[in-house]
Design a protein around this nucleic acid. Structure first.
Length: 573
DNA sequence: GCCGTTTTCGGCCCGACTGTTTTCAGTCG
């Protein structure tokens, strides 16, 4: 049985969990965890790499042994070592490790003393008061496990956009705490990851206790999880956890670096420091006992012989090496964006008129906005047929005549890709448009190869320009449909087509890894908001964040080009 | 289990907080 990368990563992670519970060498455990992360971050299926005879041992943190295990998993879906361990240690124990406050040592005791090897049994044991009687556990620990268990069942990562909405008022509140100097979001929020597990807030102030005391009175807090003089963790009513840390101003850079992560990135930096006989912690960089840096991130990177690495890149995906070689990308920024290539009006399922959408785009300083209402077959959105589309085109002409050369509404459509790969409107009308955004809105369940070929067949149509929301995934709601994205990117490159990076908060489709794959293959992406009202044009920022995580530079993004250049790029020969 | 501009063996990031302890192990980030 062939195994997908995500499944291979899950198996390796479970192996690490079970080894850890058994008390194996912690560095061996870490090796499996690192390998799991590396596989999960691969842009291509392992099985393809194996077929190409690529040497997996060249991947960072993967040696001969793990390379062999990974390719075995990819090919057979099974691993002898894992089977052996599971005979001694039930596989479900790795589930218990996911509960906050419950680590490998305690899981081992629970299993050995009480025979607990599932969440259900844990719950029962808690109810029967058995856990607090174990040696080394006590009442508080049992309570902590109870809370962790309750949170585990309700837990979900928070979408970045939602996290931003929750963070804003909290930051404004904290700003008023006594003695606050600098105040910054850290963690995956600062790295602009598409979802965040919690909020990490870094504050510099002379007296941490005063900040913590102020923090815990924030009205949205439902529970204080932990409280010290320099750290504090709470749960908001929204169930989002917030971790606050306070350090002295002189440690700002070191603390920001550390709390921003990712964990793998900071560990690599610390190892680099050790090679230079330096020690990095969240308070600074030290040579022996002497602090030699720490006030800014930039000076720490410089000390390590690195150029500054943007937070979005800190995922240990080659950024440290690229930094050393001075080959980091110059990441795209919001100011590079010249327009939006995917938007809707109240002609279909949007909320605002053509004119209102245009006005909002002009206010953002855009040169162009593509109006891409839905096509006929999307009945639920009152999709446009040829007649209604023609009427819209006339309306656009009238408006464009008013705007002059500073701004242009582009005549466009979000046309459905039908099940056979044909487009939902006749070429006779598609040819009258400035561009065509093509999308799948039906038959999500087609098999891998069929779905891929459906899209590539659509690209064969000379009026195909941009593949909208290419994988169809909805964060926390719907899996991506089964496609071979690398093949699709190759096909797009050969045909002069583009893919979209849809910036809707619950789409962010493509992922960061796929953005980077597109860049590597040489396909430009359109960062598009798919706005259904004028306010949603602001989602562009989310798309830019995601693009930056995918190492994209302005030249890799279709809508950073001015109107003349854009028209040239859209022309297919 | 990985890795090497001192190393193919002996290292592997580092500190805060908590609870159950009488000095520290476990967990987290």
């Amino acid at each position: 049985m062939i195994m997908q990368n995500s499944e291979i990563a899950a198996q390796l992670s479970r192996l690490a969990d079970l080894l850890e519970i058994e008390g194996a060498n912690p560095f061996r455990v870490r090796a499996y965890r690192n390998a799991s992360r590396t596989v999960a971050n691969l842009p291509k299926p392992v099985i393809d790499l194996v077929a190409e005879k690529a040497d997996l041992a060249e991947l960072p943190g993967i040696g001969a042994d793990l390379a062999d295990k990974i390719s075995t998993l990819a090919n057979t879906g099974e691993l002898i070592l894992l089977k052996e361990i599971e005979q001694r240690t039930p596989a479900l124990l790795s589930e218990l490790l996911k509960i906050e406050g419950l680590g490998p040592k305690h899981v081992k005791v629970l299993y050995n003393q009480l025979g607990i090897h599932s969440l259900a049994e844990l719950k029962r044991a808690l109810g029967e008061n058995k856990i607090c009687q174990l040696k080394g556990f006590g009442k508080k620990t049992a309570q902590k496990i109870q809370t962790g268990l309750e949170r585990f069942t309700a837990r979900r990562r928070t979408k970045l956009y939602d996290a931003i909405q929750l963070a804003r008022p909290l930051l404004a509140y904290l700003r008023t705490a006594p003695g606050v100097d600098k105040l910054e979001m850290a963690g995956s929020y600062r790295r602009k990851k598409e979802t965040v597990g919690d909020l990490d807030i870094l504050v510099t102030a002379p007296n941490g206790k005063l900040i913590v005391d102020h923090f815990i009175h924030y009205p949205e807090i439902s529970k204080i999880l932990m409280q010290g003089d320099t750290r504090c963790s709470v749960l908001l009513h929204s169930q989002l956890q917030v971790d606050l840390r306070v350090v002295p101003p002189i440690s700002y850079g070191a603390a920001l670096l550390y709390f921003t992560g990712s964990k793998a990135h900071t560990i690599s930096l610390r190892r680099l420091a050790l090679q230079k006989d330096l020690k990095i912690n969240e308070y600074g960089v030290f040579h022996k006992e002497k602090r030699i840096a720490g006030a800014s991130e930039a000076e720490i990177y410089e000390l390590l012989g690195l150029t500054y690495i943007e937070p979005e890149l800190r995922e240990l995906r080659g950024e440290i090496k690229a930094s050393r070689l001075k080959q980091l990308p110059r990441l795209v920024v919001q100011q590079d964006i010249c327009g939006d290539l995917h938007s809707h009006t109240n002609a279909t399922d949007g909320e605002n008129s053509l004119e209102q959408m245009a006005k909002a785009a002009i206010n953002k300083g855009y040169q162009y906005l593509a109006i891409t209402d839905h096509s006929t077959s999307l009945k639920i959105a009152r999709g446009l047929d040829t007649r209604r589309l023609l009427a819209q085109l006339e309306e656009i002409d009238t408006l464009n005549a008013q705007y002059g050369s500073q701004f242009t509404l582009l005549k466009a459509i979000e046309v459905d890709i039908l099940i056979d790969g044909s487009l939902d409107l006749p070429n006779a009308i598609l040819e009258k448009l400035d561009l065509r955004v093509c999308a799948i809105h039906s038959h999500f369940g087609l098999a891998h190869q069929k779905q891929t070929e459906r899209i590539i067949r659509a690209m064969d149509n000379p009026y195909f320009n941009i593949l909208a929301h290419p994988t169809g995934r909805l964060i926390n709601k719907r899996q991506a449909y089964a496609i071979d994205l690398e093949r699709i990117l190759q096909a797009a490159k050969e045909r002069g087509c583009f893919l979209e990076l849809n910036a809707q908060p619950d789409r962010l489709d493509l992922t960061d890894i796929h953005c980077r794959l597109a860049k590597d293959i040489g396909v430009k992406l359109a960062i598009s908001t798919d706005a259904h009202n004028a306010n949603q044009l602001d989602y562009m920022q989310l798309g830019v964040y995601q693009a930056r995580r995918g190492w994209l530079e302005a030249e890799n993004v279709l809508n950073t080009y001015n109107l003349t250049e854009l028209r040239k790029l859209l022309k297919r020969d």
